Simulated scan of single mutants.
Amino acid sequence: MKILIVEDSMFVRNVIKKVILENIPNCEVLTANDGESGFNLYQEYKPDLITTDLLMPNLSGQDLLKKIREIDKETKVIVISADVQKATRDEIEELGILGFINKPVTGEKADLLINLIKGV
Rank of each mutant, 00 (worst) to 15 (best):
L54N: 03
I78R: 11
L116F: 08
V79L: 03
T31K: 13
K76Q: 14
G35P: 00
R69L: 00
L112K: 14
V79E: 09
L116K: 06
G38V: 01
F100W: 11
L65V: 09
V79A: 08
P25D: 03
I3G: 06
D48F: 04
V29D: 13
K103V: 03
P57Y: 03
A110T: 06
E108K: 12
D90G: 06
N115H: 11
G38D: 01
G96V: 09
G107S: 14
I71S: 14
R13W: 06
V79F: 10
K2M: 01
K46V: 03
L21F: 05
I92A: 08
E36L: 15
E36D: 13
G99A: 01
L112S: 05
I24T: 03
T88G: 05
R89H: 01
Q43N: 14
I71Y: 09
E70A: 03
T106V: 15
L95F: 08
G107W: 10
L49H: 01
R69K: 05
L30A: 12
E108F: 01
D111N: 15
E7R: 02
R89Q: 15
G35V: 07
G107V: 12
F100P: 09
K86T: 04
L41M: 07
K109A: 12
E93W: 01
T31D: 15
I50W: 03
G35H: 08
N33R: 14
P25K: 13
K67T: 09
L55A: 11
K18L: 13
L54E: 03
E70F: 00
M1S: 05
I3Y: 07
M10N: 03
N102H: 12
E93D: 12
D63F: 07
C27I: 05
L49T: 11
K76T: 02
K73A: 09
I80P: 03
K76L: 10
N115P: 04
P25N: 11
I80N: 02
Y45D: 06
D8G: 04
I78W: 10
E74H: 07
P47K: 10
P25H: 10
P57G: 15
I97E: 05
L95M: 02
K103S: 12
D53S: 10
V77T: 02
E91R: 00
L112R: 13
T52F: 08
K17H: 02
T52H: 09
D72G: 05
N26T: 05
L59M: 15
L41H: 04
P47A: 13
D83S: 14
C27L: 10
I80F: 02
Q62Y: 14
A87Y: 07
V6G: 01
M1N: 04
L4W: 11
E108H: 03
C27S: 14
E94W: 00
K67D: 10
L95G: 03
M10V: 13
M56Q: 03
L55D: 04
E22Y: 08
K76C: 11
M1W: 05
L113G: 04
